[in-house]
Design a protein around this nucleic acid. Sequence first.
DNA 1: TGTGTTGGATAGTGGTGATATCTAATATTG
DNA 2: CAATATTAGATATCACCACTATCCAACACA
Lengths: 200, 200
Amino acid sequence: MLISELSARTGASVPTLKFYLREGLLHPGESLSQTRSAYDETHVRRVGVIRALTETVGLSVQQTRGVLEVVDSPGPDLYTAYGRALGHLPPAVPESDDYPRARAVIERLGWAYEPKHVATRQLEQALAAAEAVGVPLDDERLAVYGPHVHAIAEHDLARVPREPDAAISYAVLGTAAHEPVLAALRRLAHQDIAARTTTG
Amino acid sequence: MLISELSARTGASVPTLKFYLREGLLHPGESLSQTRSAYDETHVRRVGVIRALTETVGLSVQQTRGVLEVVDSPGPDLYTAYGRALGHLPPAVPESDDYPRARAVIERLGWAYEPKHVATRQLEQALAAAEAVGVPLDDERLAVYGPHVHAIAEHDLARVPREPDAAISYAVLGTAAHEPVLAALRRLAHQDIAARTTTG
DNA sequence: TGTGTTGGATAGTGGTGATATCTAATATTG
DNA sequence: CAATATTAGATATCACCACTATCCAACACA
């Protein structure tokens, strides 16, 4: 299909598609001539991914490109690819050599403190932000969160496909795309409980 | 304290503080004269909240103002205030009269489907985005998530303060500030499990 | 042969978060 | 008391970003 049809199929305007091509978010179509390229179903899907990552997950174009690069060239192992992908997701965190809040929490939960994990840094950042807002998370609360989150994570990992490429793409996109779902579920439960306790 | 000291205390530049004042994120100081105002600890805290909401939670200045307005004038009941605050948090969702994906999930979980809840709309949006990315959430998975998330939410609500004002501010800021913590915990668990299964 | 679309390049748009500059008024210091 | 510095408040400017618009020669198709 030509670019105008890709535009019709995806709802993205032709100039926007050209923009994605320029920015390297969308792989070029197969060149039919100097002035014509053929796009296929992979392009349709890719545009959907781009729009979901930017609009719903809230990534910038740059972050989206970073995530998609990991999906396209994941490297040999899941752990490395996952870490790389997390590095493109917010919050962006400056490197340091110790993350005291995160370490305390992780040790309290009996998990392994590993400062090299990107997620460790992001946890530190998130805990610091909660403190700054005036709603710090105490140990008892984190002790409650921990097992529930771990159970969710184990279930996630159990469902990752076997083949390495599919696994990486699934893990990377799943992390970004499923977080808003979990957040929405929690908000929904809050709102529901609040409605029941408020009104009657 | 004068604005320069507030700047020193918070790390925000004087022009930035003036910007927050102009935009209505920061309440004015007590005017000492035509060219001098006194700021206090409430201003220091408020700047911390603003920076955490914008930098870590990722809200725009406009969204932050919306959330802070709810905190400042919450209205009489928690449910309304919470809904209003959620409306300022991403993802922004166009209104509709039915949210089929969300309804299916909510009914499957045995919760109450209430299309008026902002969180219902946000759930629909998040589920649609996951589909678009190619990693839809099946019923079985949501059935696993549901109880864990609900347990977390109940624990959250149990710890909300009794006094209405404190409760609302806690609920609103807590929702925004604790989501990144939960997300980071889940990412950490993923990365940890991936590290163990990959390397050995 | 003519009409119209394409790829590719370049430039422009609107919004946003933050700075910079300016002025008159007021503290502070020597 | 004079000189210097700092402030509030207003206006203007900046850099960035995600797009969008325009233009052109090359080409397809009727």
